[in-house]
Design a protein around this nucleic acid. Sequence first.
RNA 1: GGCCCGUUCGUCUAGGGGUUAGGACAUCAGAUUUUCAUUCUGGUAACAGGGGUUCGAUUCCCCUACGGGCUACCA
Length: 552
Amino acid sequence: MGVAGAFAHRLLAMVRAPKGAPKERVIRLAWLCISYLWGFLAMSPVRVRFAPSPTGALHIGGVRTALYNFLLARQTGGTMILRIEDTDQSRYVPGAEEYILESLAWAGIHIDEGVGVGGPHAPYRQSERKQLYRQFAEKLVAEGHAYYAFDTEAELETMRKSLLAAGGSTLPYGSQTRAQMANSLTLPSAETSLRLQRGDEYVIRLKVPADETIHLHDLIRGDVYVHSSQIDDKVLMKSDGMPTYHLANVVDDHLMQISHVIRGEEWLPSAPLHVLLYRSLGWADTMPQFAHLPLLLKPDGHGKLSKRDADQMGFPIFPLNWTDPKTNELVKGFRESGYLPEALLNFLAFLGWNPGTEQELFTLPELINAFQLERIGKAGARFDIQKAKWFNQQYLKQKSVADLAPFLTAELTARDRSVSETTVALAITILKERITFPHELWSEGEFLFVAPTTFDESVAAKKWNAEAVAVIRAYKDALIATEPFTAPAVKDVLEKTTQALHIGTGKILQALRLALTGRGTGPDLMIAMEIIGREGVVARLEHALKTLTVKS
RNA sequence: GGCCCGUUCGUCUAGGGGUUAGGACAUCAGAUUUUCAUUCUGGUAACAGGGGUUCGAUUCCCCUACGGGCUACCA
């Protein structure tokens, strides 16, 4: 619909345009048709997956990967699949899967099919698909594309060392070295079957061709070529009976009819291996398209953003709070730090992608509409929290008073304070323009409801002088009789008081603020006074006059 | 070390053979706000370097430098 509309619009614009010779126009028209036809083809429903492994908290780069997958799925009316890649039992972390599910739900990245929702290709947890992978691995062995290998870790280590000693650039296990190792290619077949029957530990390795250039077309990076001598005979099935990522990933993507593999750049080096696997399994013609995303880098640009950066850098990198089950250490999440999911998504979308226009604020539907894989950049993007904060502020500003009210009322009820709805609404109105996070409603606005117990020393030293004291003393007396006690009335009285004393209002305003709030800065003071109310204002002024002393 | 990918203001990026190299965040200054914040206006600020190709290169090609990724029976 959107595409058709845009097409019609441009067509119309072109026909109307007086510019260009007729012939030129025809060419341009043809071009336009071709490009939109291409666009339609690219818009055909897509099946994409987000496939994290439950080894800890999902980090923010993973959320971005999920987001890009999701955007493409929604844009094309396609399907977003969640697959859990839990083939490494030793790295499994309890709670991680639930964490992933909850994070995606919070972010608004909806899963159509997969863990948590089910679907036609269930199960979606790789540990539960174990038997499937074995079948394909055995098939590869039977067809000569893979082989059994019996080498122990120690033997592999020895090989590695000897290669290194020889000045080796050769892979530890590949076409150059496999002939010297203990595997079904070198051992007599009787020996192989004996070992297999006996229950010796073994792995299944892919037999990578010796001399071939493997081509890979990446939607983001273009054509990538890797020589097969650079790829080692990767383990497909581990000795514990589990597949490695490479096998499980390719098998599942094929079986689940994935059309686009959108994942981090760290997978680019093994992508040619995956191409080889698709070929060996006879699935070359239905191989998905690849798009390898630029990485999210640490703020200093050195290294990819990692879990360790979380609290060292002073900003979250996990979507939600995460308590490490081993260390019991709590790491704060974006949600708990006050980031709004729509702001985080908007920020994340722009880390490595942009629409090519000058619009920066995008709702989710707008992102879905504007997103294009082709417009994803190639270079790694540093993670800069400043911009995330700005996005958050923008989205927070758009929130209604009703949306924000709970943040304030929760704090108030926690303190057994009951405040009228209109007062809360008034407080939010003056506070919301100044804050970046919802919790700042309280940190910035607490004084509206609770009298200050301390005063900012530096402000007092600068602003609390004889003039201020004179004005505040007179003002306090005048306020006792002020009726009604509203912002305009209170302002009027203040102006009259200062005029009578021949002192500029501006000169004493900060002292007044200090007396009322304990601080030198804050929201509109007159409205604040209305919220505090006559009784509170007078009491606070009296307290301040007693407590603060004029320093000469 | 080897292989792969990359490099436009401090950061995210637009652009692309001839542009005053555009925007946003951050920063600085001014205006508004009788304070601060918000808002508005303006400023500082970038094509990594060297060779080609070309009338012309930031844009295309090569090399170098730098950065990143991978190099596990981890994903």
